[in-house]
Design a protein around this nucleic acid. Structure first.
Lengths: 214, 214
DNA sequence: ACAAACTTGTTACTTTTTTTAACAAACTTT
DNA sequence: AAAGTTTGTTAAAAAAAGTAACAAGTTTGT
């Protein structure tokens, strides 16, 4: 199997290709060349060809790329149909909203359990799943293989429980909404951070300093 | 005023310094050297000194940095007390959750208006503010100077209204939860994207390819 | 069937960005 | 006043990202 290391910037462009090709597909277009795709996406043709080349050859000289096939290939690379077994940890305001509004199945995840500390929430149903006690998470993970977790809990909770999540529960991927730095302690797991506060502060800086742009 | 261009990586580290110094402050520590801060944060002392140096000298040779003062300085650089006048556009599931659960005032923003297309929502109160009709946004922006917008609307809505937001409303900063690429059309405004779907797909790829890490 | 026109996969090169190292100058402590 | 710290700053090194170029394979038109 291709075991080549792929740079972060390449990986981060894949979802955009995936989405873009999807919209092209819906217009009925059948094929596209790297240069036309490049122009439409506002990037360079070289970059597209080089990005794709990390994973293999999906086009044909003189023809270009079949849009549907290319999208399918990128989807396969990203693993959007893997249905990774996933638990939502923290069913507060944010956790509930994510559970209700995101199409996890189309992005490679399958939510199989929802957990919270707060007794008042136990039994409430979200996305067809009952909210369970966080105390039952370890047992749940022993009974069900769990690949990933969505972490919608405060920093302190994350810090206190990360050992359990990684070592006992065997979770290998985290969609992390807390500010706890998981990779510092466990560099071997996959982490995608979504740090609202940092993102906001960055935006604030940028608005204030618009004159310094570029 | 310092008009030097600051790289994105530097800016993105500032919020983390800000948060970290805050927690140190709360332990009662008064001063810290770049090398000790570096060790605690898991980065290099060189990098800290160089990052800070982009904005001026906040420490003292032989002494190090006064924690409270340094945090205050970084807060000032980020503009966390600017209270940028901000509207929330889109008060659906996500918009409501953000409005309710994020401390905007502590991150430099001041929410002064909430808008949505959906008539059923008009008048409902969020964060002490009534949800207004999206049709009134332009008028609202003419009466109130608006610096930034939180965009919790679908791609198509964003694409259809971005001209109004930028040109008519004069909004210069976007916290963008849609997939619409604002900077492609308006490179002159500040944008912070939060793309849940892309983030999820990236995580999926990473979990699947954990063996290729590093 | 053949030539002209395209377009990819791939390698090498260039540019930019990011990180690390080093050290004189300045302050603190004893 | 001397010894020990630690910064601000410049320069160098390393890493990453992006661009260009082209041989080889396809398609299209005649």
């Amino acid at each position: 199997m291709g075991s080549k290391y792929i740079s972060t910037s390449v990986i981060r462009r894949l979802p955009r290709y995936f989405r873009f090709l999807n919209s092209l597909k819906q217009t009925g277009m059948i094929r596209i060349s790297s240069s036309e795709l490049a122009e439409r996406m506002g990037i360079s043709a070289s970059q597209i060809r080089q990005d794709l080349n990390c994973f293999g050859g999906f086009g044909q000289q003189g023809y270009g790329y079949n849009i549907e096939k290319l999208q399918a290939e990128i989807g396969k690379i990203l693993g959007v149909d893997r249905g990774l077994k996933t638990v939502l940890i923290g069913a507060g305001n944010l956790g509930q909203t994510l559970a209700q509004s995101i199409e996890f199945e189309k992005r490679g995840f399958n939510i199989i359990g929802i957990f919270d500390k707060k007794e008042a929430l136990f039994g409430e149903v979200l996305r067809g799943l009952p909210i369970r006690s966080a105390d039952d998470l370890e047992d749940f993970c022993k009974e069900n293989h769990v690949d990933a977790a969505i972490l919608c809990i405060p920093f302190k909770e994350a810090a206190a429980n990360i050992d359990s999540y990684v070592k006992t529960c065997g979770i290998r991927g985290f969609w992390n909404f807390s500010h706890y730095n998981i990779n510092e302690k466990y560099p071997e797991v996959a982490v995608e951070n979504v740090h609202f506060n940092d993102s906001l502060m960055t935006l604030c800086y940028r608005v204030i300093n618009l004159d310094k742009k570029d």
